[in-house]
């Protein structure tokens, strides 16, 4: 690994994970030690029973049916993006451990084809959604609402997705190569296998990882804390 690879795809990964985990925990702790609003802020109608309210909290948080009704375009983009991001995350777990049961069913070639299609679709959906958001934020009637933080996050996402898509569609390296690099990370001896060091694709990986690291580091200090905060704020809506 050269110094840039080491920074982005080696030590940077550890730093990012530590900051992300610590930052999110710190944020949750900060929230939890701030006293709850004493007054009742629920919206009506709301379910009468505890399980009913919990169910509504889950529906509101994961599906936001009201938001879909009033702003279908942005919500379709948001839902597709979040689902694609989840799919991409799950797909990346293959780097930690091969999905053996799937391989047993599909065969090695079948597995690679499946990964190419699903990963490719997720990558394209995320790209389209990010471009749509960027356009909406930049040219929408209410563009003055946006602050630099919004653009920074979209820029980081765009970088991650573009470089990820490059690895998926252009890079020409297979999962086994990345698995070797991931294994080295998990053994705390980050190194690139020969296939990576000898390939120009490693630059794409380095940039992908640079954006990922920056994204994870910035996450807890940004509006993306809605990832955990939305459960709490939606609970207020159905609260007692």
């Amino acid at each position: 690994m050269d110094w840039f690879s080491y920074l982005t795809s080696g030590i940077g990964v550890y730093v990012a994970l530590v900051v992300f985990t610590g930052g999110m925990a710190w944020r949750a702790w900060q929230w939890s030690r701030t006293p709850k609003s004493p007054v009742r802020l629920a919206l009506y109608p709301k379910p009468k029973t505890g399980p009913g309210r919990f169910g509504k909290l889950l529906v509101d948080t994961f599906a936001a049916p009201q938001s879909f009704k009033i702003a279908p375009a942005i919500m379709v983009a948001a839902l597709l993006f979040h689902l694609a991001a989840l799919a991409a995350f799950v797909g990346h777990l293959r780097l930690v451990h091969e999905f053996t049961p799937l391989v047993a069913v599909l065969g090695v070639d079948g597995m690679n084809t499946f990964a190419a299609w699903s990963g490719g679709a997720a990558g394209i959906i995320m790209l389209v959604a990010v471009l749509y958001w960027l356009g909406r934020r930049t040219f929408g009637a209410y563009k003055n609402l946006s602050v630099p933080e919004d653009y920074l996050l979209l820029a980081l996402l765009l970088g991650i997705v573009l470089m990820g898509d490059h690895l998926r569609f252009v890079g020409g390296l297979h999962a086994a190569t990345y698995q070797a690099w991931f294994a080295s990370l998990m053994a705390f001896r980050p190194a690139f296998p020969a296939e990576l060091t000898s390939s120009v694709t490693r630059y794409a990986l380095d940039w992908h990882m640079l954006f990922v690291d920056a994204f994870l580091i910035y996450f807890p200090f940004s509006k993306l804390t809605h990832a955990i905060g939305a459960f709490a704020t939606n609970a207020v809506r159905t609260g007692e």
């Binding site: 702003a71 509006k223 804390t225 809605h226």
Partner: peptide, 22 residues
């Protein structure tokens, strides 16, 4: 006046502006 709800409202708004038509 700071409380958990207000802090979360301050921290998590995505400025998606879905509220504009409401």
């Amino acid at each position: 006046r700071m409380n958990r709800q207000l802090k979360q409202y301050m921290d998590i708004c995505a400025r998606c502006a879905i509220c504009k038509d409401a």
